[in-house]
Design a protein around this nucleic acid. Structure first.
Lengths: 309, 309
DNA sequence: TTGCGTTACGACTCTCGTAAGGATG
DNA sequence: CATCCTTACGAGAGTCGTAACGCAA
């Protein structure tokens, strides 16, 4: 048994039990992969994969249990490399951040700029994806940390760290009926609504509030990002409900904004990362900095300014 | 990086950072071990061990963190082998049980005989040790499961499964003053006491009871096993306090026995094993059988018979 | 001086790559 | 017949063992 053989097992699972693809990923020929697999099965004394003729179709029960062990081994192996490289040169590295459009556009630009000033040697990749996909990216090691708002399922393999809390606001063209008068859910529900797609940026909290009030929403447009919503609000399609952080003073001054803090429960944007994975010092710094910054008075004031309008 | 190199790291820790001893354990020459260690340190780009001249004295901070990862890898490796061998031939294997004298002599003989009838191919080793040592044996993989009574510290790496509950009894020579009259802690404390050493077989519960009553014990003899206690009780040294399960009808009929169920809190004997380790099917069977047997009516009656005397 | 770890070099083992073979859809 | 996995064989890389060296108690 050696690490190469165990890597083959893991890649087999990832490629759908396809030796040829595994060999391509490992930059060696098929025959070598085939041989190593057979050698391992021989050493362990039992087949790890089911075969239709010569084709692999899936893991045996034994193979499945062993694959679970292999995944902890490969995680530990990654950690060893990360530890060493962090110790050896903690100013260089790569940081993959998985997040949604909202965070990428309105929250991250500033913290990332400051991070880049402090760690010019660290390459940053922002992987934009739908919220439901973010956690998968972590599990598949295509992202180191994820930043998301929608409720992360209780995954024992993840560490969740709350980052900041915010409220929704409505945006309407100046002069719209909703710019004056009392603002309540019932009145809001009488207008066509433009907001986030299901599973995006606190959408679940919006639904929760209206459901609790026994109201049904007429959602004219559901988008993954605030920009689309703003665009159609400007065209007069209806009332937009977006995150307070997505309203940009200076850029969005043509839109009237009113806080929904009293009507819709607050949403929390959180960091998530794999519990068993070692995070380089610069990654921990990034997380800590962002959490500190969002707890800073200036940041709170910025949100309050919008919400207090 | 390969599994051999990682094994070297682990063995270095176990041998007190001694390359020669590591090479002996691995059945290869020193020079090979030395080379592999240097190659690994070179690959990782930083030393993993501190050196006084050429002698290794301990891990560097990096080495320490990496050793932690290595231990999860080697555990997973063990699990893979155990899984395969269990699947391949689940009638053969080895079972190391770590336990104390009390369990080994009075509880285990019968269940082990029955286990051997069902699994003649499984070799059983009983590792007898002091309670405080049992958990160490698990951590050092010198035992698969431990059976002990004294409180196991809250170790997140262990699974604890309660097995059975029992009470202490006193034993005295027939005709002793304590064979008649009311039995209470105060009266008991007026006699010289013979019982278990600190840390053995529920000794802590005995102390707890007398401490709570504000009584101090005159412990004439503290032994690790019941047999020693019985011997000196027979010689008239005083009153023995032992586990009810240690009183053997037929053998100990010359001793009078009275239950302390109402005076001393009950003790629980438990199984313990490493959370991350795979237990072969026969080991799980052994545990389940023993727990089932001790919950069976006949077993409870046997204890009650002694305690009810 | 002894014990321990590192370095040098030849022998061997192991793994890879090329190439051919067999089986399935 | 195209794709995929297995088997055969020679070339190359990697590891081991012997042996000599450097260093500390």
């Amino acid at each position: 048994m050696n690490l190469t053989q165990l890597e083959i097992l893991q890649l087999l699972q990832e490629t759908g039990y396809h030796l040829t693809k595994v060999s391509a990923r490992m930059n060696i020929v098929q025959s070598a992969v085939s041989r190593q697999l057979l050698l391992l099965e021989d050493e362990l004394g039992a087949p790890l994969f089911l075969r239709h003729g010569k084709r692999l179709t899936g893991p045996t029960p034994l193979g499945e249990q062993i694959l679970a062990q292999v995944s902890t081994i490969s995680q530990a192996k990654r950690n060893i490399k990360a530890l060493a490289s962090d110790m050896h040169n903690n100013q260089k590295g790569i940081l993959h951040i998985a997040t949604t459009h909202t965070q990428a556009k309105y929250l991250l630009p500033d913290p990332i700029s400051r991070f880049r000033d402090k760690y010019p040697g660290v390459k940053i990749y922002i992987v934009q994806s739908s919220p439901e996909n973010l956690i998968d990216l972590l599990h598949h090691h295509q992202a180191d940390i994820a930043l998301c708002t929608e409720k992360v399922s209780e995954d024992p393999k993840l560490v969740i760290r709350p980052c900041y809390q915010w409220h929704h606001v409505i945006i309407v063209p100046k002069g719209h009926a909703l710019t004056s008068g009392e603002l309540n859910l019932e009145r809001l529900a009488s207008f066509p609504i433009l907001t986030y797609s299901r599973g995006f940026t606190g959408r679940s909290n919006i639904e929760k509030a209206f459901d609790a009030a026994g109201l049904s929403l007429d959602i004219t447009l559901a988008a993954a990002d605030s920009d689309i919503i703003k665009t159609y609000v400007r065209l007069g399609f209806g009332v937009g409900i977006i995150a307070a952080t997505s309203y940009e003073t200076g850029v969005d001054d043509d839109l009237a904004v009113r806080s929904l803090a009293d009507l819709i429960p607050p949403s929390t944007t959180k960091f998530a990362y794999l519990k068993d994975s070692y995070l380089p010092s610069y990654t921990r710094y990034f997380i800590d900095q962002l959490i500190a910054a969002t707890h800073h008075k200036a940041f709170a004031d910025k949100i309050d300014a919008v919400q207090g309008t």
